[in-house]
Amino acid sequence: MARQKSEFARWLGPVLDALRALGGSGKPREVCDHVAEHANVPAATLEATLKSGQTRFYNQVHWARQYLVWEGLFDASTHGVWSLTKAGYQAKLDEPAARKIVAKWVKIHAAARKSSSPGEPEADEATAAPETDEEQGAVLLEILKKVTPEGFERICARLLRESGFERVTVTGRPRDGGIDGFGVLQINPFVSFRVLFQCKWYKNTVSRAEVGDFRNAMIGRADKGIILTTGIFSADARAEAEREGAPPVELVDGEKLVSMFERVRLGVRERTIYEVDHAFFADFMGSET
């Protein structure tokens, strides 16, 4: 059981290497994609999901990043960009070293919890210092999965408007190749793009065939297509969306959907919270902790 809970430890080294390869900073999705590609992560692992709908791999990479922050190898910024510290640029981690880091911080958190709440059980890798933003994202995604399919189409249209699209219309036409609506993105006074979108109110995986069918339906009708889903896209679906020589299709999965809602403050309220910086206090604790 402990082995399963600390399974994310194997990603500490690859995540560190990914940030170095990306020039020291990167968006979470960029880091995940880099790790998946260079560590040859199998499709089944990339598509496995938690009860929240978040992919298990994405969740584990985020936990790996959190431990690297506590260790002082990643910057603690929470503005959607991960970055290395000076120590992070120089550090190299194999899996045994990564597991030592995890064990060290689990022990620190357990000691901190025990001192603040003596009757409380010790924390482990699954419960130590949960990431509030991640938890709230999971709640938002779960709510999106509970709206009606028609409601999801309307809320996606609202999201597109809030993101700068104009003349957004939900067509609601059956048997239209999966086209749920269209909009216009004005880049500047001289350039605009007509965009078709499809809303997949899914709890599972969008396949390559579905991306291909959508592209076929949009050819000759728009400059670009967008598929928005509460689920995830298979690795083959992502490859199909980026296929060279074919009209581009932008894929927005549940995780990206949540970040877009947060970015435009749609359906969410901003709040300021403070998290205890255990790394700061670690140097002041006795050797027994």
Score class of each variant (00 low, 15 high):
Phe8Gly: 00
Leu12Asp: 01
Gly13Thr: 07
Gly13Ser: 04
Asp17Met: 05
Pro28Thr: 05
Ala36Asp: 00
Glu37Trp: 07
Asn40Ser: 14
Pro42Thr: 03
Ala43Ile: 03
Thr45His: 10
Thr49His: 03
Gln54Glu: 15
Tyr58His: 14
Trp63Leu: 14
Leu68Trp: 04
Leu68Pro: 02
Trp70Lys: 10
Glu71Gly: 00
Ser77Asp: 14
Ser77Gly: 13
His79Thr: 12
Val81Phe: 01
Thr85Asn: 03
Gly88Thr: 06
Gly88Leu: 04
Gly88Gln: 06
Gln90Met: 05
Arg99Thr: 02
Lys100Glu: 13
Ile101Lys: 04
Lys104Phe: 14
Val106His: 03
Ile108Leu: 13
Ala110Trp: 06
Lys114Asn: 10
Ser117Tyr: 12
Ser117Thr: 07
Ser117Lys: 08
Gly119Phe: 08
Gly119Met: 02
Ala126Asn: 06
Glu131Lys: 04
Glu131His: 06
Thr132Glu: 15
Glu134Cys: 01
Glu135Tyr: 12
Gln136Phe: 07
Gly137Tyr: 08
Ala138Cys: 12
Leu141Arg: 09
Leu144Thr: 02
Val147Phe: 03
Gly151Met: 10
Ala157Cys: 04
Arg158Pro: 00
Leu159Cys: 01
Arg161Phe: 03
Gly164Met: 06
Gly164Gln: 07
Gly164His: 07
Val168Gly: 10
Ile179Thr: 06
Asp180Ile: 05
Phe182Cys: 07
Val184Glu: 12
Ile187Asn: 05
Ser192Thr: 11
Leu196Trp: 11
Leu196Asp: 06
Cys199Ala: 14
Trp201Arg: 00
Asn204Tyr: 02
Arg208Gly: 05
Asp213Gln: 13
Met218Phe: 03
Thr229Lys: 10
Phe233Gln: 00
Phe233Lys: 00
Ala235Ile: 00
Asp236Gln: 10
Arg238Asn: 01
Glu240His: 01
Ala241Phe: 03
Glu250Asn: 03
Leu257Trp: 05
Leu257Ser: 00
Arg269Glu: 14
Arg269Val: 15
Glu270Trp: 07
Ile273Glu: 12
Tyr274Glu: 13
Tyr274Arg: 12
Glu275Phe: 02
Val276Phe: 09
Asp277Tyr: 00
Phe280Cys: 01
Phe281Gly: 08
Phe281Val: 15
Ser287Pro: 13
Ser287Tyr: 11
Thr289Leu: 08
Thr289Asp: 15
